[in-house]
Simulated assay, not measured.
Amino acid sequence: MSNMLEEKLREAIIGEMKRQAANRPELLRVHDAEDLTVHGSIDLDALVMVIAGSVAGGP
């Protein structure tokens, strides 16, 4: 996997995790430092859609 694709996927995952945490702060907390720390419930279907869109070249 190329570094560019890895970075795009990383950004998509972190962005989606932060979006979910902002929309449901009572269910999910995200801390993005060197590593991503996630506490709570993740909407896996939404995460999969973001990853698929990122790989396909979507927004």
Rank of each mutant, 00 (worst) to 15 (best):
V38G: 07
P59L: 14
K8V: 08
V30H: 01
G57A: 08
I42V: 15
I13T: 09
E6G: 10
G15I: 06
L36P: 03
H39A: 10
G53W: 02
H31W: 04
V55W: 02
E7K: 09
S2H: 11
E11K: 14
D45V: 07
A21N: 03
L28C: 06
R10A: 12
S2M: 07
I14K: 08
M1K: 06
E6Q: 10
A21Y: 08
L9Y: 05
V55T: 05
A12K: 03
R29D: 13
A33I: 01
R19W: 01
I51P: 00
I51V: 15
E34P: 01
T37Q: 14
L44S: 14
G15R: 08
A46T: 01
H31D: 14
P25F: 07
R29Q: 13
E7L: 09
A12H: 01
L9E: 02
T37C: 07
R10W: 07
I42D: 00
V55L: 13
E6R: 15
V48M: 09
G53L: 07
I42A: 00
M1Q: 08
V55C: 10
L5Y: 04
S54R: 03
A21G: 05
L5I: 15
K8H: 11
A21C: 04
G58A: 06
R10C: 05
L44T: 09
M49W: 09
I13H: 00
V30K: 04
I51L: 09
M1Y: 07
V50N: 03
V50D: 04
A21D: 07
D45P: 02
D43G: 02
N23I: 06
M49L: 15
I13N: 00
N23D: 15
E34V: 08
E16Y: 01
L36T: 13
T37E: 13
I14W: 01
L28A: 02
M1W: 08
S41W: 05
R10F: 04
V30I: 12
T37W: 10
E7Y: 02
N3W: 03
G58D: 08
